[in-house]
Amino acid sequence: MSKVSMVLNGKSVSADAEDRTLLVSFIREVRGLTGTHVGCDTSQCGACVVHVDGKAVKACTMLAAQADGADVVTIEGLADGTALHPVQAAFREHHGLQCGFCTPGMIMSAVDMINRHGPGNLDEKTIRHELEGNICRCTGYHNIVKAIKAASDQMAGMAQAAE
């Protein structure tokens, strides 16, 4: 048992947890944030993707102790109050989900890929390749890809407007 401390969605949190506690269990069960899902539990499906120090990782394949001292963002930390993050808004607009189970991971992966490539720099082929680690069993991916492309382009426009 160790004390695990991290900044979770902008708030400093601290809790005792067994060393074998997975980051996703810490987030869901200790902190009660159930937006991050557990799909396959074998690091293949991507439903558990969160950001640790700004990078997308699979929270089912990381110990909470490994994230001690880190800055962690989950799907609950993306929106600004009631204003959805542009990627969340684009998933709604383009119907990028059906059952919604994979959506939190899809959105966290999408935000990560837009951050890495830069807003506006994503084409369809790149998006499909980047989604290698996220599985959706409903949509056939088309609308997810459309939503990510739209969000990426919109964020490029926002960045330009801000300059």
Partner: peptide, 9 residues
């Protein structure tokens, strides 16, 4: 190797 999230770790 793997996928983007795996490559981050």
């Amino acid at each position: 190797i793997g996928d983007p999230a795996v490559r981050h770790m």
